[in-house]
Write a protein that binds this DNA or RNA. Structure first.
Lengths: 201, 201
DNA sequence: CCGGTATGATACCGATCGGTATCATAGCAC
DNA sequence: GTGCTATGATACCGATCGGTATCATACCGG
């Protein structure tokens, strides 16, 4: 209903942007396979043809979406890290507070990357490497912070924290925001302290 | 090719069984939405009509599959628990060793329930309540064991362990069996000990 | 005014989706 | 035998899938 006559504020974004944003929203909320290109185009006040003028295929659109998600994710991460320079321990803490905040959002439906990994089983899908690279980088970054925090077995601690992060996201889907996902920050804190204070894993 | 003339060992299972088993396998390996009823029927050496004679709809078949999964899951759990009667601490340990074993299987593609929760976004889908009930029960059972183990904040510890379990399953999908999923058992051990020995969470 | 660029509209393609109707046959119980 | 049950085979349904071709229009810089 807000198409041609009403242009309340600023320029109308390009068809590409509208389509991309609509796709991102629908993919996350409804799932990748559950959303057809026609639905995306209609939701963006465009047409299927408009979609295929900006993206070579639905699979590529999916991959593009996840690439964008990856970029935004690390932007947030770096912003957070920059608030605690030279203090990896605090960065770890802040990362989990950030995750806790995201997971507490009632609109949350888990991690877009992990969800995509569940839905996409074709091993040649262009999104696969985006997902794997993203998660590998997350693992590595956690390990960095664990090293900096002086953990005795930093890679091990990093993997434990990684499991908590992934678990919180999926728990938010199955048991909601008031479920176990709520406890992810204290869980991380307990794990970190255990690793820092004791000598044996 | 092994239909009428060859009957190598025992009776041929009923069409229902063959269809159900094929569906279970395909749903888990390829995903629910990625598998059509025709594909299932063909894989079971039956036909689409044969499928609809045994199951009212694909959605019901999915729900049935998850109900079966739930039953088998708790059978395994109880068997494990019965090996350590009156020792909840050991049961906790055994549960995580069981999970670790499952997650180390290269064919593993996470938790069928959680994956289904990711794929199924319709809130009226018959599988939804199966999933939620299953996960709620898992959470409760973990809490029981944490109480029995003498944890100071048993529900909190249970939730932390829950996160680890879910995280390990999804981590097996994104980063494979040699990724962080491998560390789930030691992570649980660290968490449990931290909760039992210290007085503050 | 001219010409490119971006966009919408519509019709179409073959394939597949979930689901159904109909007919035939094979086995088993009585 | 006569049924009844289980199963297979096939054809069909309307809807939707991802993807394309074509035509028209609106805008914008020269």
């Amino acid at each position: 209903m807000a198409k041609k006559p009403s242009k309340p504020a600023g320029e109308r974004p390009s068809a590409r942007r509208r389509i991309f944003d609509t796709a991102a929203d629908l993919f996350y909320r409804k799932g990748i396979r559950a959303v057809g290109v026609e639905t995306i185009a209609a939701g963006a006040d465009s047409t299927k043809m408009g979609l295929y003028r900006s993206f070579p295929s639905k699979d590529e659109l999916v991959a593009e979406w996840l690439r964008d998600h990856d970029i935004r994710f690390w932007q947030q991460w770096d912003k957070m890290a920059n608030r605690h320079p030279e203090d990896p321990r605090k960065q770890l803490n802040a990362a989990f507070r950030l995750l806790a905040k995201h997971v507490a959002d009632p609109r949350a439906r888990g991690c877009a990357m992990a969800n995509a990994a569940v839905e996409i089983t074709e091993k040649d899908h262009p999104a696969r490497e985006v997902i794997e690279t993203h998660k590998a980088k997350l693992r590595a970054r956690l390990a960095e912070l664990c090293v900096g925090s002086g953990a005795r077995q930093p890679q091990l601690l990093a993997d434990h924290l990684f499991l908590l992060m992934e678990g919180a996201q999926v728990a938010a889907i199955t048991l909601g925001v008031r479920g176990p996902a709520r406890s992810v920050a204290p869980a991380a804190e307990a794990l970190i302290e255990a690793h820092l204070s004791r000598q044996r894993s």
